[in-house]
Nucleic acid binder design. Structure first.
Lengths: 282, 282
DNA sequence: TGTTATCTGTAATTAAATTACATTTTGTGC
DNA sequence: GCACAAAATGTAATTTAATTACAGATAACA
C-alpha cells in the first residue's frame, strides 16, 4: 500500500469523526473517489464540502483536486494487481503481461508490509549471530541458496543445508547466539515449521520470511511478511519468490552497510574479485 | 512509456498545430503539467483555454481535470525508475525503497525487451528438446536451480549441474536435439561463454538469458534479454536476478500450457501433491 | 478564387472548490 | 455537572477553474 492510503488506514492517527468517515469511504472505494467532485463525495459520506476540503489540507495536500491527483497516482502504482489468471487460450504476450504484473503486485504489497523497525531488529540479530542457518524446501530452496550465496560474500557465517535431515540436525545444534532463517511461501510446510520449533527450543532466534499469520509466523520471533493473501493461488509460488528475494536483498544490503566499512567500497571489492572471470569491457 | 504519453509522442497522429504544441509541452514537462491549471498551461503553451480543453476531449478524456488525473497515474507508474544509489547514510526505510524500486525498474525494462515471438521460438525448442541443460555460475546458480526445479515439475527433461566441470562435460555431450540454457547477468562470465561455445559446436540450441549485445548473447542462437544497461552497477546483480526469474516463470508457464492438457488442471495436480506436507487451512 | 470545413479565440456560463463566518459539538477545569 | 475554551462542522459567499456557445480566422479543396 502506498503512503496516502496507508496514512488513511492508520487507525492510530488522531482524526475527527467526519475525517474518519471520509477516510473510511476513500479506503473502501478509492478508485471511485478519483472521479468524484468534492460535492459528490461530501454528499456520499454525509458531510459538508468544506469538511472534505479540510480533510485534504489536513493530510498536507493543497486541496481536494490535489488529493485526487495523489490518489490516482497511488492507485496507478497498485494497479498492477489487475493481472488476471492465466487461462488456456492466453497468447504468449498475455502470459508475459500477466506474469510480470503479478510480480510487480507481489513486490508492491511485500514492500508495503515490511516494517523498517523489524528489518533493523532482524539485521541486528543476524549481525550478532555466531552462526546463521537458512532453511527452505522445494522452490524456497533456491531462495535459501541465493541468500547463502550473498551472505557468504559479506563474510557472514551462514549455511543453507539442502536436505531436511541435515537441516534438522543443524537446527538442533543451534544456541542462543544463533539465528535460523526460515523461508516458506505458505508458512505451512510442516518440516520447516518443525525445524523452527526445534531451533526455538534451543533459544536461537527464529526469523520467518513467510506469509503473515501463518503457523510458521507464529513460531518465529521475527516475521518478515511476504505477500500471499488475496492474490490468486496460481501466482503465489511464482511471484512471492521474487518478493522473498527482494527482502533478502534488503537484508544483505543492510548487513553489508552495518558491517562497518562503507558499503560501496566493499561491494566494489567483491565485484573486482569476479572480474577475473569476465571477458571484454571494464 | 504508458498509453497516454506514447499517444502524445506518436508523430503519426493527425493533429492540429496547437494540439501539436500542447502535446510537445506536455511531453517536455509532464510532471509539471500535473500541477497546472488549464489557464496556466494555455498561457505557457500560448493557446487559449478551450483549445487545451478540446485537446483533452480529443484524446478521449472527459476534460482537462481528467487529463491531469490520467497523466498523474501514468507518471506514477514510471516513477519506479527514480531509484537512486544506496549511499552510506541511508536509513533502513531508504534501502527498502531503493531495493524495491530497482526491482520494479528491472522488471519493467525486461518486460519491455521481451519479444513474444522469440519467447515462443524458445519454448518450441525447449518442448522439442530431448534434454535440456541449464548453466549458471555464482549468483545465477540459484536461478538455474530454480529453473530446474520448476521444469522438473512439468516433466521436462532438465538438468542444472552445479559445478563448472560437470557443466562442460554435459555441454560436450549434447546433440542437435538438445538445448542449453545459459544464465548470466553480464553475459561476460568466461566459463559460461565457453560452455555455450562447446554446446553450439555440437549443434545444440543455445539459449541465453542474459544481457543483450554481450559476448554470451553473441554466441546464443536465441537471446532472452534481461535489462542491465542503464541501471547503476550496484543493482545489476540484485535486481536483474529477479527479472531473470520472471522470464523463467514465463517460459515454464508457456511450456506447461503447450504441454497439451490444460494448464490450471496441471497446476492443481502439482499443488495437491504438496498439500500432504502442509498444516492447517485448505 | 470562392467555398467549405476545421480550427481557434473571446466572452458568457456553469460547475467546482475554497474562504469567511456562524453554529454546534467536544473536551476540560472547577 | 456546569461554565468555558477549543475544536470541529456546516451554511453561505466568494473565488477560481473549466466548459460551452458563438464568432472570427485559417487552411483545404475544387
Amino acid at each position: 500500500m502506498g503512503r496516502l492510503l496507508a496514512e488513511l488506514a492508520d487507525s492510530g492517527a488522531r482524526r475527527s469523526k467526519s475525517a474518519r468517515r471520509i477516510a473510511d469511504y476513500v479506503l473502501a472505494q478509492p478508485a471511485e473517489v478519483v472521479s468524484l467532485s468534492i460535492g459528490e463525495l461530501a454528499r456520499r459520506v454525509g458531510v459538508s464540502e468544506p469538511t472534505v476540503g479540510r480533510f485534504c489540507t489536513g493530510l498536507g495536500l493543497k486541496g481536494f483536486p490535489d488529493f485526487k491527483l495523489n490518489l490516482a497516482a497511488e492507485l496507478a502504482r497498485q494497479d498492477f494487481h489487475v493481472a488476471g489468471d492465466i487461462v488456456p487460450g492466453d497468447s504468449c504476450a498475455d502470459v508475459i503481461t500477466k506474469v510480470f504484473d503479478a510480480a510487480h503486485a507481489s513486490l508492491q504489497s511485500t514492500r508495503g508490509g515490511l516494517d523498517p523497525g523489524v528489518v533493523e531488529a532482524v539485521v541486528a540479530r543476524l549481525r550478532a549471530a555466531r552462526s546463521i542457518v537458512i532453511v527452505g524446501q522445494g522452490a524456497s530452496a533456491s531462495v535459501a541458496l541465493d541468500a547463502q550465496h550473498k551472505m557468504l560474500r559479506f563474510d557472514i557465517p551462514v549455511l543453507a543445508h539442502p536436505d531436511n535431515l541435515t537441516q534438522r540436525m543443524a537446527a538442533a545444534g543451534l544456541g542462543a547466539d544463533d539465528c535460523l532463517l526460515c523461508i516458506s511461501y505458505t508458512g505451512r510446510t510442516r518440516p520447516v515449521i518443525d525445524i523452527a520449533r526445534i531451533a526455538d527450543a534451543t533459544g536461537a532466534t527464529v526469523i520467518g520470511l513467510t506469509a503473515p499469520s501463518s503457523p510458521l509466523a507464529g513460531v518465529a520471533r521475527f516475521v518478515l511478511p511476504v505477500a500471499s493473501g488475496e492474490d490468486t493461488d496460481l501466482y503465489i509460488p511464482m511471484s512471492s519468490r521474487l518478493a522473498q528475494l527482494a527482502v533478502i536483498d534488503v537484508l544483505t544490503t543492510r548487513l553489508a552497510m552495518a558491517q562497518g566499512e562503507d558499503y560501496p567500497a566493499q561491494f566494489r571489492r567483491i565485484k573486482e574479485s569476479q572480474l577475473s572471470t569476465r571477458v571484454g569491457k571494464r
